[in-house]
Design a binder for these strands. Structure first.
Length: 475
RNA sequence: GGCCCCAUAGUCAAGUGGCGAAGACACCAGCCUUUCAAGCUGGAGACGCGGGUUCAAUUCCCGCUGGGGUCACCA
């Protein structure tokens, strides 16, 4: 029988990185074993905006490159894949448990923070099995006591005293099922063979195992994945930046690089490889090799992994990535991007940036001025590059000679710059730096002649003039 | 606090009853270079602590400390 796994998120409108990694491990596991990957929406407690929230999930998975065999948009044998559409199933199963005296109607309406005992188990009657379960009264599980033990694929042998979980709720008084209960009913109904989820669910597992036992269902295998923690060691949250899949996309990371990085959080192929394509991840992945200890999210390492993937990404795609960011930040508009001439320019800039362009957002760090007609702002800290009289003289002349150049080639530009420097008794470096700051407002970037070439003849002249005007001479 | 889990450098992470304890990111220095990035060379940096078991523990056991998770009619 083939392996069947599921990713069962709650539609919160936010695709957390930890959830994404959970989905990824399930997907890799299924793809490796040629099993089935199911997307199931746990929306029993959600109201309104569920559609949008589900879009966040499906868009996130699709962006990362994961596809599902059953779920929203891909209805299969076990539909529906929304818990909110499966209420009758949960009620029918609950009725069965009540009939067997393994569950009972709770009439006392005790809330969760009232820790006094609920005595409703003493009032069980045969009539309970006939009671409506579509609202008004909650159903509790009759905890059988004893010990639950299981072998977790990543955590190893785990053991719990059942008593500590009490007679937990199965059906809430509004008629909807609780998480632990719906999970068991659905996982069984959908013939799930392996449950891989965050390790914050370990203590839910004994509860669910008691239910499998009560129903006489065979339980799936469990694999509890370690948590992903924020760079400061605490919980991942919005304030850490890049805590959601969406942010990774917005900041211009390649999906296959994000997948690669996420896979390496809590798992490794066992050797020193770190660059793995989706195909390699699939063939190498092994739940047994998942670590038990939590891993911290590290942006620098993500950037590094991304840069590795960028090296193997065709210029055209890198250019599109850059263009997406530029449009996003208002430096280009969508109509511009449709024009081949504009895209050619973006591509030329990206090509000039080379390995400096490690992920999408960096187009702004290095290349913002390429997409603006205004001369760049020159920070006063950079004035020293433009203050010396000798340098200024050379800069002025270089600007003029550049603007008179009839052959706008790298070679000609270089000749002008080096020649001018020499004639002014300067080494090339100070003039090169002065031109760079004038043209880009920065001390870092592509080779100077490439920079001048890309900025263009007219703009180069104007920016040099503007820089000379802005920065006062100094003796 | 009860219960469960974890513990190799700042981070990710390989690994074993006997090793000079991999590798990567980050960091430092040098080379290259018009700058940065990349590349190359070199460097610093780890088995949390205390007891056992053993000829020998980073590795096995116990305790401690530290960290995480969970204790709902949320999922």
């Amino acid at each position: 029988m083939s392996v069947r796994v599921r990713f069962a998120p709650s539609p919160t409108g936010y695709m957390h990185i930890g959830n994404a990694r959970t989905a990824l491990f399930n997907w890799l596991f299924a793809r490796k074993l040629q099993g089935v990957f199911i997307l199931r929406i746990e929306d029993t407690d959600m109201q309104r905006n569920v559609e949008d929230a589900i879009d966040v999930i499906t868009a996130g998975l699709s962006w990362l490159g994961m596809d599902w065999d059953e779920g929203p948009g891909v209805d299969g044998e076990f539909e529906p894949y929304y818990q909110s559409q499966r209420l009758q199933l949960y009620r029918d199963h609950a009725r069965q448990l009540i009939k067997n005296k393994q569950a009972y109607i709770c009439r006392c309406h005790k809330s969760g923070d009232d820790d006094s005992e609920c005595d409703c188990r003493l009032d069980m009657t045969d009539a309970d099995a006939e009671t409506d379960l579509d609202g008004g009264l909650a159903v509790r599980f009759l905890n059988p006591g004893g010990t639950t033990e299981f072998e977790d694929i990543v955590q190893g042998k785990l053991s719990f005293e059942n008593e500590q979980f009490g007679d937990f709720i199965l059906i809430k008084s509004d008629g909807t099922p609780t998480y632990n209960y719906a999970n068991v009913v659905d996982d069984h109904a959908m013939q799930i063979t392996h449950v891989a989820r965050g390790d914050d669910h370990v203590s839910n597992t004994p509860r669910q195992l008691m239910l499998y036992e009560a129903f006489g269902f065979e339980p799936p295998e469990f694999a509890h994945l370690p948590q992903i923690m924020a760079p400061d060691g605490g919980r991942m949250s919005k304030r850490h930046g890049a805590s959601s899949l969406n942010e990774l996309q917005e900041r211009g990371f390649l999906p296959e690089a994000a997948m690669n990085y996420l896979a390496l959080l809590g798992w490794s192929p066992g050797d020193e490889r770190e660059y793995l394509s989706p195909e390699e991840l699939i063939s190498e992945f092994d739940l047994q090799r998942v670590s038990k200890s939590p891993a911290q999210f590290n942006m620098k390492r993500l950037i590094h992994i991304n840069s590795l993937h960028m090296e193997n990404t065709p210029l055209e795609r890198r250019a599109r990535l850059a263009a997406g960011i530029l449009v996003d930040r208002g430096l280009l508009n969508q109509a511009d991007v449709e024009q081949p001439r504009v895209m050619d320019r973006v591509a030329a800039v990206v090509e000039a940036l080379g390995t400096r362009f490690k992920y999408g957002e960096q187009i702004l760090e290095y290349g913002e001025h390429f997409f603006s007609d205004a001369p760049p702002e020159i920070d006063s800290e950079l004035y020293s590059y433009l203050e010396e009289r000798q340098v200024r003289g050379a800069l002025r002349e270089a600007g003029e000679r550049l603007s008179g150049l009839s052959d706008w080639s790298l070679e000609a530009i270089e000749e002008v710059v080096r020649g001018t420097a020499e004639e002014h008794g300067l080494k090339a470096a100070p003039l090169i730096h002065a031109i760079r700051v004038s043209l880009s407002g920065s001390t870092v970037g592509p080779g100077l002649f490439t920079l001048v070439h890309l900025v263009g003849q007219d703009q180069s002249y104007r920016r040099i003039q503007a820089a000379l005007d802005t920065v006062p001479a100094q003796d």
